[in-house]
Amino acid sequence: MFIIPGKHQEQGLSYNPFKACVLPRPIAWISTQSAEGICNLAPYSFFNAFSDDPAIIGVGIAPDSREEGVKDTLQNILETKEFVFNLVSWEQRTAMNESSKPAPADVDEFEAAGLEKLSCNFIKPYRVKGAPVHFECKLFKTVDLPENDAGEHYTLVLGEVLGIHIEEAYLTDGMVDATKMQPLARLGYQDYAVVKEVVQLVRPTA
């Protein structure tokens, strides 16, 4: 079956298969702070790492359905140039989902989701207590992606990682242990996956 993106219904599919075919996708649970000091927390599944020297991560943020058209996360990053990536574990799946609920800009999603805050070393936004990993990030640049038929566009946010917090309980022999963290990943539709098993493939030499 050959599908043209955005034309899936014309080809007999009720839902767009694009995101269901790019899987599993890590979830960026992004915490920010407005210029006025209001905390914001929201999950994004268009996320990955793009460089390790320097350490660069990227998050794709959709346009907002509200009149101003910009999500609070993006607005805060543009204003302050800072944000935190919090890794979502299986244990925090419900809180992560709760923080995805649309809310006014003056609502603190940490409080709404019943989450505690941890301070950062280099930046003002708070970290999510209980998350296995946190990246303290500064904005590198934003890129406006192509507009859709409605004239809206996603924004790609690229951030440089200034520091990494890792809970020592999730380290084994000095290495991050994914089976201990059990990170949550996004699939298509309303589906998620959790990492409970890993396999090793040693890269062959030339």
Rank of each mutant, 00 (worst) to 15 (best):
D72F: 14
I123M: 03
T73L: 14
Y15N: 11
P146D: 00
P24N: 03
S34R: 02
Q75C: 13
D52L: 13
T73A: 15
P146G: 00
H134R: 03
G188D: 05
L187C: 13
V198Q: 05
S45I: 06
S99M: 06
P183S: 00
V199M: 14
Q9V: 05
M1R: 08
G163Q: 10
L184T: 04
A20Q: 06
G114K: 04
V84I: 07
G130L: 01
V143P: 11
E168L: 10
N76R: 13
V198G: 05
Q92S: 12
L78S: 13
V161Q: 01
H8Q: 09
R127S: 09
Q9F: 03
S119A: 06
A42W: 12
I4S: 02
E79P: 10
E111S: 03
V176R: 01
L41V: 11
L41C: 08
P132M: 00
G163S: 11
I56R: 10
P26T: 00
E82V: 11
D106M: 12
T94A: 14
I166Q: 05
D173N: 10
K129H: 13
E79M: 13
L139R: 03
S89H: 06
V84A: 04
W29G: 05
P132S: 01
S89M: 07
L187E: 09
L118F: 06
S34V: 00
L187K: 09
V202N: 15
L158R: 09
